[in-house]
């Protein structure tokens, strides 16, 4: 059933290696592994306990992915308990990972963890703690699963193809990106931390449901100052096969799987830089 965490050596695979972190309540790890494999990466799903026991494990990989789910039930706040674990056990290892020019991707719950552990947007201080940006309850105060359009807002992020609008699905109850005050928001804008904005099919910002959760400035994803950390609420791993598009039966086969670009770009970047 593909549950094994360590795969046999395969000479035909490239040397791009990704680690997908698991914790109690992680639940998008298998499809995230699948999406990374489609992009050509070798993937291990690793439980956080194994990683904490052996932090050097992470050195074997170039892409670190925190997948979606409800880590620890989203108790206290979404991603908070896992972020607490990351801060107390993995911070140094992750900082080293990023300093080595490697990539970190947080999807949905993984994005919440990156923000709450202070790894995103991560511009103001060297100490990684959450400071002035958060992800909180949707304005609707409920979980919602729906498709959204995303417009890239930065040319710095290695995961993103500038100018290419993406159509992806969200599934979350706490996805509203909030900045502490207007100055923080303008810093996010001026420092190009905003990776994606929610837009409509024509590329315009809008209210609910174009912006499904009420995020400030329609923020759907954030990147750090290096462009090598990306966090986003939508799920790119849920659109890597044509039949995942909600209207694929209307499209006569003309379907580009938008989710794949995120993983393809990551793998391409690693191939070009390592």
């Amino acid at each position: 059933m593909g549950q094994g965490e360590n795969r046999e050596e395969d000479a035909n695979m490239t040397d791009v290696k990704a680690i997908v972190l698991r914790a109690a309540g992680t639940n998008c790890d298998v499809e995230t592994q699948h999406a990374l494999e489609l992009a050509g990466a070798r993937v291990d799903r690793v439980h956080i306990n194994s990683l904490i026991r052996n932090l050097e494990l992470v050195d074997a990989y170039q892409i670190f992915v925190m997948p979606g789910g409800f880590s620890y039930g989203d108790d206290v706040a979404a991603g908070k308990i896992l972020a607490n674990q990351v801060m107390h056990h993995l911070r140094d290892a992750l900082e080293r990972f990023v300093e080595q020019g490697k990539l970190v991707l947080g999807i949905c719950n993984g994005f919440q963890v990156l923000v709450k552990a202070g790894l995103l947007p991560g511009a103001t201080a060297s100490s990684h703690t959450q400071e002035d940006v958060t992800i909180t309850y949707n304005d609707s105060d409920k979980f919602e699963n729906r498709w959204v359009y995303l417009a890239p807002q930065t040319d710095r992020c290695v995961f993103i193809e500038p100018g290419r609008r993406l159509y992806l699905t969200v599934g979350h109850g706490e996805g509203k990106v909030v900045a502490q005050d207007p100055s923080v928001l303008s810093r996010l804008q001026s420092m190009r931390h905003i990776a994606f904005q929610y837009v409509d099919a024509q590329g315009r910002e809008g209210g609910y449901p174009v912006n499904p959760n009420g995020s400030m400035a329609s923020i759907a994803g954030l990147t750090d100052t290096t462009g090598r950390i990306l966090g986003l609420m939508p799920h790119p791993e849920r659109f890597v096969h044509p039949t995942q598009h909600p209207r694929w039966t209307r499209m006569n086969g003309n379907i580009e799987c938008d989710g794949r670009t995120i993983f393809d770009n990551a793998v391409k970047y690693v191939r070009g830089h390592f």
């Binding site: 998008c28 699948h34 979606g68 409920k142 919602e144 699963n145 699905t169 995942q244």
Partner: peptide
Amino acid sequence: RQYDHEVQG
């Protein structure tokens, strides 16, 4: 819409 009907991909 309150149910995640797409998880597991």
